[in-house]
């Protein structure tokens, strides 16, 4: 499913001329690849992301899936409950606060994420359930895989700002910034080392 999502993102990239691919490798201080880091590229000639979809975060086995989801501003995310128990999904994140009170099995509720940024999503009944929706305002955003690599394709050439975000990244707003020059054609790679703190609570590993 995760792979499918990644493929979906790739297919979104416009196949235009004067665009290159940007590969970002994210590792922690120990050199271990960091998964689920969101790499966001802001080229000078930016473009608004388009809402595609559907965006779904499933609750199954008392776990949110996926753990990290990238959505464009204004996207609607569905929260289907596949568990037999009830969940009380909420987020206190500024601009994206919501609360889906005690909905039962196979019930699906959706939430529109209006504010760019990270929305931490939890379940008030099950403390160890956690998920993060990264609301982005750029079409060039990809999350790293288990190898810590994210490839952003079709980025317009030229200088671009890069932001790397991760829910546990030890930095203000859990993200670090960098710049990169994207070639008009071809690929460029960059590595980013980040400090990852232990998760505050036990939940699904990453």
């Amino acid at each position: 499913m995760r792979m499918a999502l990644a493929l979906a993102v790739l297919t979104l990239a416009p196949a235009t001329a004067w665009a290159g691919d940007f590969t970002m490798t994210v590792r922690n201080k120990a050199g271990v690849p960091v998964q689920n880091a969101v790499v966001m590229v802001y080229p000078t000639a930016g473009a608004a992301p388009r809402i595609t979809g559907p965006y779904v975060i499933t609750q199954k086995d008392i776990t949110f899936d996926p753990f990290v989801m990238i959505v464009p501003v204004g996207a609607e995310v569905k929260f289907p409950n596949k568990d037999k128990v009830r969940h009380h999904v909420y987020s206190f994140s500024a601009g994206n606060r919501f609360e889906i009170k005690l909905y039962g099995k196979d019930e699906t509720r959706s939430v529109v994420f209006k504010a760019p940024g990270a929305a931490a999503i939890g379940c008030n009944i099950h403390d160890r359930m956690a998920a993060y929706v990264r609301v982005v305002d750029t079409p060039f955003a990809v999350k790293t895989g288990a190898d810590g690599i994210a490839i952003v394709r079709g980025v317009p050439g030229g200088s671009a700002a890069v932001r790397v975000w991760h829910p546990y990244l030890r930095a203000p707003k859990n993200e670090v910034a960098a710049t990169v020059v994207i070639p008009a054609q071809g690929a460029v790679g960059q590595a980013q080392s980040v400090e990852i703190r232990a998760p505050a609570n036990t939940h699904q590993g990453h």
Binding site: Y90, F92, A120, I121, G122, C123, D127, R128, M129, A130, Y132, P167, A200, N201, H203
Partner: peptide, 9 residues
């Protein structure tokens, strides 16, 4: 005790 929502507040 940490205040988690679910990230640490």
């Amino acid at each position: 005790a940490p205040v988690l929502a679910p990230q640490a507040l």
